[in-house]
Computed example of a mutant assay.
Amino acid sequence: MEVKVKYELEFPIHASPSLLYQYISTPSGLSEWFADNVNSRGEIFTFIWEDSEERAKLAAKKSGERVKFRWMNEDDSDSEYFFELRIMEDEITKDVSIVVIDFAEEDELDEAALLWENQISDLKHVIGSV
């Protein structure tokens, strides 16, 4: 099994942190841009795409600021990999951006970044921040 490397991407987005937080922290919000469907039972979230299903545990959240999901292994144990979405607001300019922290295999970093670009583009479209 290949070791994954951590990477970070930042996307400027025109939206208030409180609105953005709804889209990154709730099953209904996430299912509008991140996955085809998202269900949650307590802190366990199930992300459903056309041909796959992944489970993750809500590892951390801070209202209006960030949410972190830790992927779960087949045996329901926590994997070492997670993805985190952070909302950053510049104190002076009030510019808002979303920071994505994720993992990918080294030879798939470009592909992973492109996937996030597409996902964030969908998010901007959903919230009207085009």
Rank of each mutant, 00 (worst) to 15 (best):
F45M: 01
Y21V: 03
D51R: 11
I13A: 07
F47E: 02
E84S: 10
E91H: 09
L9C: 10
Y81G: 05
P12C: 01
N118A: 11
E8P: 01
D75Y: 02
V130Y: 13
P12E: 14
D78E: 15
S121I: 00
V3R: 14
G64R: 02
S121N: 12
E74D: 14
M72A: 06
M72Q: 12
I98N: 06
K94Y: 12
A59W: 07
E65Q: 14
A35Y: 03
E111L: 10
A104Q: 08
L30E: 05
S28Y: 10
S97W: 04
L123I: 04
F69L: 03
D78P: 05
F11Q: 08
Y81W: 10
R55I: 04
N37I: 02
G64S: 06
A60D: 13
S16G: 09
L109Q: 07
P12F: 05
R55S: 09
E105Q: 14
V130N: 14
K4H: 06
L58H: 07
P27K: 03
I92Q: 13
I44F: 05
L115G: 15
D76R: 02
S129H: 01
T46I: 04
V99S: 02
N37F: 08
E32T: 14
S77P: 05
Y23H: 11
E105Y: 11
V3T: 15
L58V: 04
V38G: 04
F34T: 05
V100P: 03
R41T: 14
L85G: 02
R66H: 13
R66Q: 13
M88Q: 15
D76F: 02
Q22A: 08
L19Q: 12
E50D: 15
W49S: 05
V5W: 00
V130M: 10
